[in-house]
Deep mutational scan, measured.
Amino acid sequence: MSGNGNAAATAEENSPKMRVIRVGTRKSQLARIQTDSVVATLKASYPGLQFEIIAMSTTGDKILDTALSKIGEKSLFTKELEHALEKNEVDLVVHSLKDLPTVLPPGFTIGAICKRENPHDAVVFHPKFVGKTLETLPEKSVVGTSSLRRAAQLQRKFPHLEFRSIRGNLNTRLRKLDEQQEFSAIILATAGLQRMGWHNRVGQILHPEECMYAVGQGALGVEVRAKDQDILDLVGVLHDPETLLRCIAERAFLRHLEGGCSVPVAVHTAMKDGQLYLTGGVWSLDGSDSIQETMQATIHVPAQHEDGPEDDPQLVGITARNIPRGPQLAAQNLGISLANLLLSKGAKNILDVARQLNDAH
């Protein structure tokens, strides 16, 4: 009898209710805020589980004197976190989706994509230029951005401005803007500013005609071990179906173009009346040469937790077992079709030249 009692006690200790789920994140304040929001949602869904947040620095956090596009290494903000995932030191990792490459290392998958916040870019102005827009900034004003995508589009749109690289986390960039006289304004992701509670610093939100956004911008991705079915089931509740389908289309477009950090590629997606609209573009580094096109596809946005595919093969690095396969494939095909259209119009040449120029500098 006593033996059975011990077995029952052991089973209770090993039951999922007692389990601590370890969540990996970057150390920056924004990353911690984003991770806290994901953990809060998981806690609400699984009140019996405990969650421990483990923060670590990544290569991208450490190399702050070089433009991201020049470092010449993929997975700048993800490699150390993936290493911890691989060694079973954490069970899942919360990322900004735009930091996750469209091809993940073997053994990993994006197990959830959370509801997207505003994906557009924002302009934050130096205190002396508050009330201005990019259009009304004085001639030769210097605007800071760490992104080739932003610089290429904005140089084309605002030729009277000069664009220079600015690195560091959000706090560091804002301090550089406010305390030094080098920059009249800087460009940042609206979602990051909003998550930090800095709505009052948003001086201008850039519309798609001015600057399309990065693939996955404004959404959070939760990376897990691809074979860890328990954790895949656990994080599945975080999937937002519309965000998922938009981001599958965007990531398929980028992957098929073979774009990345070192080339200016941008997108804009919208879901309306059962249609998914995808606009994508590529630019030369100075913005003088560009190709942009829009395509659409009829896609039914499923309700969360309709029964999805059981075999769960990944699409552009994403596993969404609780979302039907048909809409996911339709979104992926839309991204591939748009990429093929741009490639047929000469996108590869623009991107190759951009890559060579970026590598040469």
Rank of each mutant, 00 (worst) to 15 (best):
V282I: 06
V94I: 06
V94C: 14
F183V: 15
Q217D: 01
T66W: 08
H300S: 07
M295S: 04
K140D: 13
G48F: 10
V39G: 07
T25I: 05
R325P: 15
S75Y: 00
K87E: 10
L154T: 07
E223P: 03
M295K: 12
G72A: 10
H120Q: 09
C114Y: 04
V39M: 07
L161I: 09
D233P: 06
T59Q: 13
T133K: 10
K128T: 15
H300G: 13
R167Q: 09
M295Q: 05
A354R: 15
M56K: 13
R32L: 08
N322R: 13
A270Y: 05
V265Q: 02
V20P: 10
A214D: 06
Q34G: 07
Q296W: 07
G346D: 04
E306H: 12
D307E: 07
T319L: 02
V130W: 06
I166Q: 05
S28L: 01
Q332W: 13
V93R: 10
R175H: 05
N171T: 12
L76R: 12
T145G: 07
V263G: 00
M271N: 08
L234D: 04
T109W: 07
G197N: 04
A151V: 10
L220N: 03
S284R: 15
Q229L: 09
D240W: 02
V143S: 03
T145M: 07
F158C: 12
A55S: 12
F125V: 10
H207A: 14
D273H: 06
I299V: 13
A84I: 05
G60N: 07
V265T: 05
P101V: 08
P127F: 11
I231T: 07
A252S: 03
Q314W: 10
A189R: 02
C114G: 07
V103R: 11
R321W: 02
E135H: 04
I350G: 00
L343I: 03
T109A: 06
P324M: 03
L341G: 08
I318Q: 02
E306I: 11
T190N: 15
L68F: 05
T136D: 13
T319S: 11
L161M: 12
E52P: 07
D233R: 08
T66E: 14
S96A: 12
R149M: 02
S147E: 03
A189Q: 03
L177E: 01
E223D: 05
F158R: 09
V90I: 11
T269L: 03
Q153F: 00
A331E: 04
E86T: 10
M56D: 14
G107M: 14
K128Q: 06
D178C: 13
P241C: 14
A112W: 03
L97A: 11
V124S: 07
L81D: 04
T25H: 10
T243L: 00
E86M: 09
H305N: 13
K227S: 09
L92I: 12
A219G: 09
N333C: 01
C261M: 01
Q229G: 14
H95N: 13
V94P: 06
G218A: 05
M271C: 06
R355G: 15
P309G: 15
L234V: 14
I33P: 00
G107N: 07
I336S: 15
Q296E: 11
G281C: 11
G308F: 03
I166K: 04
K62H: 02
M271I: 15
E82G: 04
D178W: 06
F51K: 05
E162H: 05
F125G: 02
V90G: 04
R167T: 12
W283V: 02
V38R: 04
E209H: 09
V90H: 05
I336L: 05
L254W: 15
D352T: 06
T136C: 07
T35F: 00
G168Y: 02
L244I: 03
D230F: 04
P313R: 14
P105F: 14
A347Y: 15
T319H: 15
K74R: 05
V94G: 04
G216R: 03
P105N: 06
G317W: 12
N171Q: 12
K79T: 10
L193W: 00
R116C: 07
Q180F: 03
I53L: 12
L49G: 11
P309H: 10
L206G: 06
L285Y: 15
W198S: 09
Q304P: 06
K98A: 04
P47F: 08
L245H: 09
A330P: 09
K140P: 11
Q29I: 06
H83I: 08
D91F: 00
E306A: 15
D91Q: 06
A266Q: 04
G111R: 03
T58N: 12
I318A: 04
A249F: 01
L232A: 07
K272G: 01
L254R: 03
A189P: 03
T190F: 00
L85H: 01
F125Q: 15
E73D: 15
I248E: 02
V353R: 06
T58C: 12
T243S: 12
V235W: 02
T41Y: 10
V130P: 12
D240Y: 13
V224M: 15
I205N: 09
E135G: 09
I21V: 13
G335W: 03
N88D: 05
I63W: 08
A84N: 07
R150Y: 01
C211G: 08
Q194V: 13
A331C: 13
P313Y: 15
M271E: 15
L334F: 09
L193F: 05
E86I: 13
G218I: 01
D61G: 03
P327H: 11
K43Q: 11
A303Q: 02
D99F: 02
Q314S: 06
F129R: 05
V123P: 05
D36T: 11
E250W: 03
L338D: 00
K87H: 08
P47V: 11
D240T: 06
C211Y: 09
G335F: 11
S75P: 12
L76I: 06
F163E: 07
T35C: 08
Q50F: 07
E209N: 02
F158T: 14
M295Y: 15
D99S: 02
T243K: 06
L343R: 14
V130D: 15
G24W: 01
L206M: 14
E135I: 11
V124Q: 04
S337C: 09
G346Y: 00
P324H: 14
H207F: 08
I71H: 08
F129N: 01
F77D: 03
V90A: 06
A354S: 05
E310W: 03
K43F: 05
A330C: 15
L188H: 12
